[in-house]
Amino acid sequence: MLKESHSLIAKLQKNKILIWFLILTITILWGYAWVLMKEALAYMGPFTFSSFRFGVGSITLVLIVLLSKKGLPPKRYWRQLVILGILQTSIVFLLVMYGLRFVDAGKSSVLLYSMPMWSSILAVKFLDEKFTPAKFLGLFIGMIGLLTVLGWDIWVGQSFDVIFGEILIIIAAISWGVSNIFYRVNLNGLSQLQVNAYQMLFGTIGIIAVTLFAEWGQPVQLNMHSIYYILFTGVLASALCFTVWFLILSIIDMVSATLSTLLVPIFGLVLSSFILGETMSAGVVAGSGLIIIGIVVSQISKKHPRRI
């Protein structure tokens, strides 16, 4: 299995077109997953869906890790993996799925993918990274974009529920940023695939615990549509896409990887507008553009890219 993996990496390194085709495919699937996450709320509670999704996804991902013969992580990392799972899977997706009850899927994807801004701010404090003029400018532009998305809703008299949902998703983005810093400080010794598999497993346990407490006894409709949403987001968008993504990360630099993830909210906005009929207001479009520009400016200035 390891020999086959190394052979695949060697082939991909010689074929940049295939690499970027895979990146494009993954980001489209992740953007489409936002549509399905929103649609799934018609069949079950947000926490119940997350339990199904990440239950299926984490089991699939752990099986992939075991088949690749990476095995269980050393026991000294288990506590850190539990904490990472709570930060990156439990908190992020509990808040995102609850926020999706009130916020459009496209706008939600933009708000969550403001994560690199929060990571950059935290990296200055906890990783002693330099706050360069370019990074400051990028963060300033991104923050203006974030305020544009939120401020537009406030000025047009948006309901409190929508604003509350947006705040929850921003908190999720901050938690994701915190988890990235935590990973850099505590889990650099493990492979990214191992980290993602086991943090997702532990994070799923947290999601299930909240689901049992908050949504026990609530109706769940398991039919062709809802099962498709669970399997697509759990197996394809969570487990398999992340497996390919970590393979790609071993080939391309982190700046290119970070910038390529900005395609996800773009596809999220476009697909949500096309499939769900969501309206892309001037504030959302302008704010999204500023957030993306800000992240590009802050990330592309790095001379020695590192994982954020």
Rank of each mutant, 00 (worst) to 15 (best):
G85C: 01
W216L: 13
L127C: 06
L276G: 05
L18C: 09
C241L: 07
G45R: 03
Q194G: 12
L2T: 15
E166L: 01
I169N: 03
M115F: 03
L112Q: 01
K70I: 11
N180Y: 10
M37D: 11
N223F: 08
T204R: 04
L41R: 06
L222D: 07
H6S: 14
V220H: 03
N15T: 06
Y77Q: 12
A105V: 04
F213H: 14
V244E: 07
S50E: 07
R307A: 15
M44N: 10
F47V: 14
H304R: 14
L111G: 07
S114F: 08
L247T: 14
I208F: 05
I19S: 06
V162C: 13
F140R: 02
V110D: 11
L67P: 00
F213W: 14
G138P: 11
F54Q: 03
M224V: 14
V270Q: 08
S51P: 10
G294Q: 04
V195I: 15
Y77F: 13
S114T: 12
K135R: 04
P46W: 09
L259H: 12
L8A: 15
V103Q: 01
I19A: 02
F160P: 13
I300K: 14
L111R: 04
P73Q: 08
P46L: 11
I169R: 04
I266S: 04
L72I: 01
L87V: 06
I83S: 05
S288K: 04
P46G: 04
L122P: 02
G142K: 05
V285I: 12
V82D: 05
D253Q: 09
A197D: 11
F54H: 07
I154E: 11
N180S: 15
R79I: 15
V82G: 06
F246I: 09
G106H: 09
A173D: 08
